[in-house]
């Protein structure tokens, strides 16, 4: 797992999450991501590198969305990986997050 800051501006941040988002690292992720939420007005998370996400991971994403809304931060998720899309579809959460999802032709059927 790693959070990489791709682009940082005074009001916005563009982050990239790699590896897995699961019960094993949600605590660290929450801590790190919450800190950003306190400082910026706009936040984009690139999920292309997320190879695995579980229930706790999804819950974390939901939490971030909730926090962002409360703090009036614009949060967007982008470049969802296959694993993320599969889970969001399974839980019918795509519309909840409302971010455009690009489905690659290479992915196995969802």
């Amino acid at each position: 797992m790693a959070i990489e800051v791709k682009q940082q501006q005074p009001d916005s941040v563009h982050l990239v999450i790699d590896g897995e988002v699961s019960i094993y690292n949600v605590s660290e992720l929450k801590q790190a991501l919450s800190n950003y939420l306190d400082t910026v007005k706009e936040m984009q998370i690139d999920l292309a590198g997320v190879a695995e996400i579980d229930g706790a991971g999804v819950q974390l994403l939901m939490f971030l969305k909730q926090e962002a809304a409360a703090k009036r931060v614009e949060l967007s998720l982008a470049r969802h990986s296959e694993a993320v899309v599969e889970v969001l579809e399974l839980l019918n959460l795509s519309t909840h997050f409302g971010d455009p999802i690009v489905i690659s032709a290479d992915w196995k059927s969802l």
Binding site: A56, M62, F63, Q66
Partner: peptide, 30 residues
């Protein structure tokens, strides 16, 4: 569950999830 039939509709909610520090990411609110 999907192997037994068709999930026609699913609502995922985290209604009781606290905000900020109080939220423990390792607890399940789903």
């Amino acid at each position: 569950l999907k192997t037994l039939g068709d999930i026609k509709q699913i609502l995922t909610a985290a209604n009781g999830m606290p905000s900020g520090e109080a939220m423990d990411p390792e607890s399940c609110y789903l």
